[in-house]
Design a protein around this nucleic acid. Structure first.
Lengths: 227, 227
DNA sequence: ATCGTGTGTTCCACAAGACGAAACATACGT
DNA sequence: ACGTATGTTTCGTCTTGTGGAACACACGAT
């Protein structure tokens, strides 16, 4: 279940309503009636705004006439990902982390009271954690979320076991800017059978190293690293 | 260079302006001054609307304070792609096409006067065509674009050699709905060295078969195929 | 250190534009 | 044939968004 920052008042009512419509459709196509029901907008308002978004390719009608997210969002989503300094910078470090740890590796950034997966590489194992790029996950559950909330252990990482999903363990570390602010979380995740119920000591150092490498590659340490 | 449908009047002025802002930022981050310049919006208007989009995560500020596309667009772009019937339906057929042809395979849909890559699988070759999902390409150049404009040869495919990019050849076929309307173009592309300067006869049949498989899997032939 | 310029942000009088109830058109189930 | 629900359009109303002016700040030139 995905939500844009909900019930937020930006000061521009039309944009608040349009964001509510996009958010409602992130879960799948909706008829006008469904959209009205989900967004609590009056029918003519929902119709007018959805049609306007359709004009710009941000929405489209599917073969049943239902409103759905449009192709322009594919391009914007791609541009958003490629424009994120971390997503590009993280790729090599995530590859190394995935290869050295043998487990799936992900990078998350905070989005309101949730986290969004900015980059994700899967391990080669048949049994592996799969998190899609763009997937929205909770903050309070799982090591990546806890890191984004500001938690960090003395060794620079946080581990979790079966917090977000049964059978899954993970280790994450914060990616910080030059002021020490946590801008992302990088980590590995996989089944407890491989990661054990105490995955931190084994995987923590590699995850911390990956976090430093990402911060460096993204130029988050000021002038310390050429970018 | 990406553009939302430009200078289109949807009937909701705020959405027209917001779409212009998103479009301007698809090419990369911009300062407020740059945004004002690119969109021709008055400074307070651009500031207000960009801040409102930022509130919803559709935009963000980068480390230099410039406006950039936000993380919410990563999630929406992902949802847009996964919600597109063709993107999911095409995956198996694109895999087979890529494997049998040995070349990169892509699926495009029309977006105004351009095309957007909805799905893309790369070949194993060191020298291969790389088109990112979400990439925006012209309609009039390249076999995929020409197919989306309605062109098709007697054998059901169109070939092009060095139209869009030097050294690149491609073959595409239309994916049609039950009324015969072209809803997408599927094709292979790669270097002339492998595809030759007459790639149609060799690759055309497989591309056409892939187009039919995609249409079937997406349920575009009415009730002929269970979906 | 001072000044001019350009940037980002806020204010607020104004009217343009968005709103949404009502009406209309269509489709569907009974 | 009728009632209900859907999608779409109309248009009087007034809320909301506009954008010039002003303010605050930063920077480069002198």
């Amino acid at each position: 279940m995905f939500r844009l920052v909900e019930h937020t008042i930006s000061g521009v009512g039309v944009i608040d309503k349009a964001a509510a419509i996009l958010s409602a459709l992130a879960d799948g196509p909706l008829s006008l009636a469904g959209l009205v029901s989900t967004t609590d907008l009056p029918r003519p308002t929902a119709h007018r705004l959805a049609s306007a978004l359709e004009t710009h390719g941000l929405l489209r009608r599917d073969s049943d006439g239902r409103f759905a997210l449009g192709v322009a969002l594919v391009a914007l989503g791609h541009a958003a990902t490629s424009g994120w300094p971390l997503a590009e910078a993280a790729h090599d470090a995530l590859s190394r982390l995935r290869d050295r740890s043998g487990e799936s590796a992900q990078l998350y950034v905070r989005q309101g009271e949730q986290r969004v997966c900015l980059a994700s590489l899967e391990s080669e194992h048949g049994l592996r954690t799969i998190v899609d790029t763009g997937a929205v996950l909770p903050l309070g559950l799982g090591s990546g979320g806890r890191v984004l909330l500001g938690e960090v252990g003395p060794d620079g990482w946080v581990a979790s076991v079966e917090e977000r999903e049964p059978g899954v363990a993970s280790v994450s570390a914060p990616v910080c800017d030059s002021t020490g602010r946590v801008v992302a979380a990088v980590g590995v995740s996989g089944p407890i059978q491989r990661l054990t119920d105490n995955p931190g000591p084994v995987f923590g150092p590699e995850v911390v190293a990956a976090a430093r490498a990402i911060a460096g590659a993204a130029g988050l340490h000021g002038h310390q690293h050429a970018t």
